[in-house]
Nucleic acid binder design. Structure first.
Lengths: 109, 109
DNA sequence: AATTTGCGCAACTAATAAGTTGCATATATA
DNA sequence: TATATATGCAACTTATTAGTTGCGCAAATT
């Protein structure tokens, strides 16, 4: 059995990404989320479980309702993972810049 | 049938992420990749297909070998998706800063 | 020309995951 | 206390996918 849900697996599903987009603006209950999507409450509940297990969302009970909040700190891990590639695309874009410079020089001739 | 592989789906697999990390440093052939992982060449070939279909990698034939290069521009799309949440975590961190300020003030008393 | 090597595609198996319905539990309301 | 509502968990079905083996094709080597 899986100890913990994988962060990348969590955002692979479009519905879960939609949930994240929603609650990044405002915390919502499972029922409120289910109303937004064309699926049963139980289906949404499963997505919530996945997002919760990898700590992308955080429950805050309020009476018999549970508001799920967006955990920005966890989302930042993607930002850190992306860091290893930033250098790559800067290099590739610099090469593009060089190419553009060459083309400019050719125009002058 | 799926028209095109999804970017998020592509990076959901740990082996594919490892491939991306490898070729971000240096372009590799399918065989060279397969040697790095404990799986058959065909399995790696499938991952290559997924990464290629969503344009995260780009083939450059060289004789009977094919070097796959990392496409940084495509990975940037993930960066752009993350952008919608950057504001959220800045807000949450600002709130943390405020809290820290409050705690500092309490120390002074 | 014959053989080896690099690669992709097809078929198959096993595991995973998204969705459903049904049920149990806890909180709020009448 | 009885009832309605909010939520999570379990069992099931179906679809997807990661891995395998086997095959065919094209390029390089002998």
């Amino acid at each position: 059995m899986k100890i913990k849900q994988d962060l990348f697996q969590a955002i692979a599903d479009p519905t879960r990404r939609a949930i994240l987009t929603l609650i990044a603006i405002q915390a919502l209950t499972p029922n409120a989320m289910a109303e937004k999507f064309d699926m049963t409450r139980q289906a949404v509940s499963k997505h919530i479980k996945v997002l919760h297990e990898c700590e992308l969302i955080r429950p805050e009970p309020s009476g018999r309702e549970i508001y799920y909040h967006f955990n920005a700190k966890k989302m930042q891990e993607f930002d850190h993972w992306l860091a290893q590639f930033r250098q790559s695309w800067e290099v590739q874009f610099n090469q593009l810049d060089k190419l553009l410079d060459i083309l400019k020089d050719q125009d002058k001739k």
